[in-house]
Design a protein around this nucleic acid. Structure first.
Length: 553
DNA sequence: CAGCGCTACCACACCCC
DNA sequence: GGTGTGGTAGCG
């Protein structure tokens, strides 16, 4: 017993000496100027849904990130924190090496592309040239389909190429324009005509040899795309396309741009597209700027031929600006923001089904559209069905950072600003889920110019209550298997604490020997101080890998 | 104890000519 | 043989 105590004392002394030699880096202190210091948020979850549930319960502007922690099988855990705090711990690049942004389903996001080809299988391919051609093509399409002006200077171009593979991420920084969600980005497939290139008339000779093939010199395409003019609908505010329109445009024979540059060969010599179309799924993980895949050492860095440079800021470093620009789902609501949509005909049918339980088909066809929050949809509908006027929901957008649901209303134009209905401009109902209030804005240029926003009204108790009940259910359902690690900085909100580990749990979770082991290395001590300690405490499998990663640096 | 979402593929049932 | 379904390996 005595011995054990001595040994422990010695270890502690050693640790103290170590800390003296290399003092710990600063702890994150958010907005010190404010008297009530906002709490730091740093929580890890094993399950994505638990992470998103926590975000819902959180008043702050938090986001979900995925962290890879096991080599090989790509296992991930989920981190919830703010952009600011993540960047604080992330920027040194001594830890958090393999981070991914989770692009939330249904949330407004930027246009983005994942580009790649195998260099050996495509010896003739000039990656930079292909990127430039793609950007040019996409900009042209944005102009012709949505009247959006942009150029290569609005495209953040990140490189993650290796000896083997050419690999890029493009993140479009459009001015006051974003897509409804990443599924719509996926539907916006200007590149579909290029599929004909893969399917049709494959020259079997070069396919077999896999050499002597240049897609630049290939036979001209029969099918291309000519971008017809988008006609704004009645109110001139809709920028909606569906795949049929795209098809129609795609089948037009005139002035087909040459898309053959998009065709590359994979390892086995088969034709495929330069653009990876597999990155437009729900809750897609998209690797962060300056992160590498686990087991690899190539991080996403600004490409040589990048032409986008964020605006200089007094308060935010250039690197931080780049980081923020690289985030696909970092789009905030603004009065001037235009939301682009691109539907498939399938989706339209689905939406109709979605509402058929409560409404007649006739109504649905006229464009009633449901959000992931049917109770709120119903409430909004009740707001715009007044005084014999049957208003409807033309569409909705969800802004993840603010937890804001924006409903574009049709056929009901009462505006609180002018205290009468607008003649030709539609109104919006905005539902703030964080503060559980709703208010009205509108598309009228005059109202917009004065930045009109009606008073806030509380959401009816039923809606709020339904909400809480739903969440409560989810929390209790996952409670038994719930063992996410706790953030040492902040105790969980008491109302939700039953679903998360308590501070006491956290203390008990520290494995003393492990702690000593971990802090033997000064860098690890720093990592621990930087918030990763919470990581070590509750999760058994993660630490080894993290230690390995930190030691390798 | 512990990832997620999706597609391609396969086995099998059922139906019809 | 054509079509629908349900389960799953494997990919991004």
């Amino acid at each position: 017993m005595e011995r054990k105590w001595e040994a422990k004392l010695k270890q502690i002394e050693e640790r103290a000496a170590c800390y003296e030699r290399k003092p710990l880096s600063s702890v994150y202190r958010p907005r010190l100027s404010k008297p009530e210091e906002p709490p730091s948020i740093w929580k890890l979850f094993h399950r994505q849904t638990e992470a998103f549930n926590f975000v819902k319960s959180c008043k702050e502007d938090v986001h979900v990130f995925a962290l890879e922690y096991k080599v090989g099988d790509g296992q991930r855990i989920y981190l919830v924190t703010t952009y600011t705090q993540l960047w604080f711990y992330y920027k040194s690049r001594k830890n958090l090496l393999h981070c991914y942004e989770v692009i939330p389903e249904n949330a407004v996001c930027k246009l983005y592309f994942d580009l790649e080809f195998n260099k050996h299988a495509n010896p003739e391919a000039d990656g930079k040239k292909m990127v430039a051609l793609l950007i040019e093509h996409v900009c042209k399409a944005l102009q012709e389909l949505y009247r959006v002006n942009c150029s290569a200077e609005d495209v953040f171009n990140l490189d993650s190429s290796t000896e083997e593979k050419f690999s890029r991420h493009l993140i479009f920084q459009l001015h006051d324009v974003a897509f409804k969600d990443n599924i719509h980005v996926g539907n916006f497939q200007i590149l579909k005509p290029a599929f004909h290139l893969i399917a049709s008339e494959d020259d079997s000779i070069s396919e077999k040899t896999g050499h002597g093939f240049s897609h630049f010199s290939e036979t001209p395409i029969k099918q291309g795309i000519s971008f017809g003019k988008m006609s704004p609908d009645q109110d001139g505010e809709s920028w909606t396309l569906n795949s049929k329109e795209l098809e129609r445009l795609g089948s037009a024979k005139q002035s087909s741009p040459d898309l053959s540059f998009l065709v590359v060969r994979n390892n086995t010599g088969e034709k495929q597209l330069f653009v990876d179309l597999g990155v437009y799924t729900r809750n897609r993980n998209f690797r962060l700027y300056k992160s590498s895949k686990i087991g690899k050492h190539v991080a996403l860095e600004i490409a040589e031929d990048n032409k986008f440079f964020p605006k200089r800021s007094e308060t935010v470093s250039e690197e931080n600006q780049c980081f923020l620009s690289s985030l696909v789902s970092n789009v905030r609501f603004s009065d001037t923001l235009r939301i682009l949509t691109c539907d498939t005909s399938q989706n339209k049918e689905k939406r109709i089904e979605c509402f058929s339980s409560t409404n007649t088909k006739a109504e649905n066809i006229e464009g009633f559209r449901c959000s992931p929050y049917p109770e709120i949809d119903q409430f909004v509908l009740s707001l715009v069905n007044k005084n014999g006027i049957q208003g409807g929901i033309r569409r909705w957008s969800y802004f993840f950072p603010e937890e804001l649901l924006v409903y574009d209303i049709c056929k009901y134009r009462w505006c609180e600003n002018i205290r009468r209905a607008h003649k030709s401009n539609n109104i919006m109902i905005l539902v703030d889920l964080k503060n559980e209030v709703w208010y009205q804005k509108c598309h009228d240029p005059v109202c917009k110019a004065e930045n009109f926003k009606s008073d806030c009204f509380p959401l009816p108790a039923e809606v709020g209550l339904l909400f809480l009940l739903k969440e409560e259910e989810e929390f209790t359902a996952t409670e038994t298997m719930n063992s996410e690690t706790e953030n040492p900085h902040k105790p969980p909100p008491s109302t939700l604490s039953k679903g998360v580990a308590s501070d006491a749990d956290w203390d008990n979770g520290i494995d003393d020997t492990y702690f000593l082991e971990a802090t033997e290395d000064a860098e690890l001590a720093e990592a621990a101080e930087n918030g990763l300690l919470s990581y070590y405490s509750g999760v058994d499998e993660i630490p080894d890998e993290l230690i390995l990663q930190v030691l390798q640096e």
